[in-house]
């Protein structure tokens, strides 16, 4: 089980837990504002963009080429950007803090 904290643009904090699925699905299930996930998780819309807390970046599987390409032109992209639809929930994410990018 991984406990993940989402912080939205208007500074609302939402803590959610899951042991499977994607981080995007978890966010949508908890109505996290700014995670719209328009395309349902096929890496086409970039509306599930989050910034990962620095100390968790190396605990994540690296972003694939397509995800990196999508992020290249995403609003508010940084070195800590990920598309949460491509982040499969693992134990290693327990305690992770994510700032919603938009």
């Amino acid at each position: 089980m991984a406990k993940i904290t989402f912080i939205t643009k208007d500074q609302e904090t939402i803590v959610a837990e899951a042991d499977s699925g994607s981080v995007m699905e978890l966010a949508v299930a908890h109505n996290v504002k700014g995670i719209d996930a328009d395309c349902g998780g096929v890496c086409s819309c970039a509306t599930c963009h989050v910034h990962v807390a620095a100390d968790y970046m190396d605990k994540l599987e690296a972003a694939g080429e397509i995800e990196k390409d999508m992020l290249e032109f995403a609003d508010n992209a940084s070195d800590f950007s990920r598309l949460s639809c491509q982040m499969k929930i693992t134990e290693a994410m327990d305690g992770m803090v994510l700032n919603v990018a938009n």
Partner: peptide, 14 residues
């Protein structure tokens, strides 16, 4: 069921 599908059918960017 294409899993990674960064299509541009709805356009792209702003």
């Amino acid at each position: 069921d294409r899993k990674i599908n960064p299509h541009l059918g709805f356009g792209f960017s702003h």
